[in-house]
Design a protein around this nucleic acid. Sequence first.
DNA 1: TTGATAGGCAAGCATTCACTTGCCTATTCT
DNA 2: AGAATAGGCAAGTGAATGCTTGCCTATCAA
Lengths: 102, 102
Amino acid sequence: MADDLFKALADPTRRIILDELTEKSGQTLFEICSRLSMKHHLGMSRQAVSQHLAVLEGAGLVVTRREGRYKFHDLHTAPLRQIAERWLTADPDRTEPEESTS
Amino acid sequence: MADDLFKALADPTRRIILDELTEKSGQTLFEICSRLSMKHHLGMSRQAVSQHLAVLEGAGLVVTRREGRYKFHDLHTAPLRQIAERWLTADPDRTEPEESTS
DNA sequence: TTGATAGGCAAGCATTCACTTGCCTATTCT
DNA sequence: AGAATAGGCAAGTGAATGCTTGCCTATCAA
C-alpha cells in the first residue's frame, strides 16, 4: 500500500504531473499532455501520460471522475501526509528545522 | 537532486533500513544486515545492503563516519521535510488533516 | 450516419534496478 | 606476521519500469 505511493513518486514525470494538478486540478488527459509538452518540453505519447495517471491513481494521489467523454483528474494529497512523518517522529537530527521557529 | 531522494525512498528495503536507523542511529553495515535478517526476515547479501546504504547516502538521507575499520551510518531526515510540502502548499483537498486540529 | 474527439487495452522493446558472486583492501586481535 | 573482521569494487543476471505502436470503444457535433 505504501509501496504504491513511494513508487508513484519515484518518477520525475509523475511528480511534474502532480505539480500541474496542484496548479489546476480537474484536468483531462489531453490537457495534461499538452501542459507536459508546452511547459516542460516532454514529448511523450498520450498513452505514456495515461499510464502515469493510472499509477498515480493506484497510489491514491489522483482521483478521477467521468463526465461524458471527458475524464477529469483531481489531486488527492491525503496520502502524502503520512510520508515524511514516518521517520520524522524519532528525528535524531533536528539540525535545521527552519530559521528560528518564530 | 530531488530525484535521488524519491528514488531512494522507492524501495521497500531502503525504507526499512531508514526505520532501523530511526530506532537506532549510528549502526554499522553488519549491524543493519543482521537486523534486516532477524527482525524482517530479509535474507540479503551484505553487498545488497551496502548498495542500498550507498543509495540512501547519495540521497542525503544517511550520513556516514568512519572510525577505524567501522563505518557508522546515521540518519539525516532533513531532506524529508521538503517532500510532502511540495504538493501540500496549494492543497486542494483538505478533507482529513487530522481529527480537529486542537 | 459519418467523422472527429477523448480515452482504453495489450503486446513489444530498451533501459534501469536489485541482487548475486568473486575478488580485493584496510584495520584489529593474537 | 598471520588470521579474522569490516567493508569496497565490478561484472553479470533476471525482473521491473517507462515508453511506443497499433488497434478498439465511447461520446459528441455535422
